[in-house]
Design a binder for these strands. Structure first.
Length: 278
DNA sequence: TACTAACCTGTACG
DNA sequence: ACGTACAGGTTAG
């Protein structure tokens, strides 16, 4: 099945992508990627790398079949046909979603861009200028003032401590990739600034955990709108305990590729509320 | 254990 | 114009 790059990038999973003419450029860790929207199979990059950015190994047709439990999802997969999960650089993903808490798309994007400008490397690629995402060790050396000037606000201590944990190998992404979902999640939850939602984003988008299903306020709205009465809710905010219960119900219903469902349901509710993307 | 207020910062509303 | 509300949550009490 064809990849739809616009749907994929404009579905809330990445922040540092921008489109020039019909080519999307994205920062992915120390790399800069260029993908032609009309021919997404061809990924070129600044640093040579050959990873499976669009998760072709997931056998997409099988995934779609597996998650198509009802009309809502079937319609969404048809409407946003070609929407994929992207395999992201773990450190960038980790910092990105820590920076995302209680913020909005524009702010998140701006803070992250400031981080790359201040701490990343400037590279020229396809006659354009980009800044890569800094290495953990580089970001761990940042001062409070420098991070404040990026616009992170009260998340500065989150980012400082989180960067330190990675640069000192207390958080090891390769290990977390191999670990099972719950073990990896437990690990991430130890990090100051990471709660259930942020942990699930990191797990889904960069650590190979397709059963992760980030429950943010938009997904809650989506579930309430499209699945009234199916899952257990009380109120609009979700407490620690309910998060776990709800997640279990969701995986039981949608199956092992529940994370893909989250992406479609998120896209669906944001589009229907006419929220802006990148 | 369970619930709530406070929180940087930028922007969209009235 | 200028204040107020609120945004892809988390922590501390």
């Amino acid at each position: 099945m064809q990849i739809n790059l616009d749907h994929t990038i404009n579905s809330g999973q990445v922040f540092l992508w921008e489109k020039f003419d019909s080519v999307w450029y994205g920062i992915n860790g120390g790399d800069v990627l260029a993908v032609d929207a009309d021919n997404p199979k061809l990924v070129s990059s600044f640093v040579k790398s050959d990873y499976d950015l669009f998760r072709d190994n997931d056998e997409f047709n099988h995934v779609i079949k597996s998650i198509s439990k009802d009309k809502t999802i079937k319609d969404a997969t048809r409407k946003f046909s070609g929407l994929r999960l992207m395999r992201q650089d773990p450190f960038q993903c980790y910092i990105s979603f820590i920076a995302s808490s209680n913020s909005n798309l524009q702010n998140i994007k701006s803070s992250l861009k400031n981080i790359t400008k201040k701490f990343g490397d400037k590279v020229k690629f396809n006659n354009k200028e980009f800044y890569t995402f800094p290495e953990p060790k580089k970001l761990a050396k940042a001062t409070k003032q420098e991070l404040l000037s990026c616009g992170l606000g009260y998340r500065v201590p989150f980012v400082m401590k989180a960067s330190n944990l990675v640069s000192t190998s207390h958080i090891d992404f390769d290990y977390l990739k191999k670990a099972d979902y719950l073990t990896a999640k437990e690990s991430l939850l130890q990090v100051f600034g990471i709660g259930d939602k942020v942990a699930d984003c990191i797990l889904l988008f960069s650590l190979e955990k397709l059963e992760a299903f980030p429950l943010d306020r938009w997904i809650i709205r989506s579930l309430q709108q499209y699945y009234p009465g199916r899952f257990s809710f009380e109120g609009k905010t979700i407490t620690k305990n309910k998060y776990q219960t709800l997640h279990q119900e969701i995986v039981q219903y949608f199956g092992p590729y529940a994370g893909y469902c989250q992406q479609f349901l998120f896209k669906l509710i944001r589009e229907s509320n006419q929220k802006k993307w990148l």
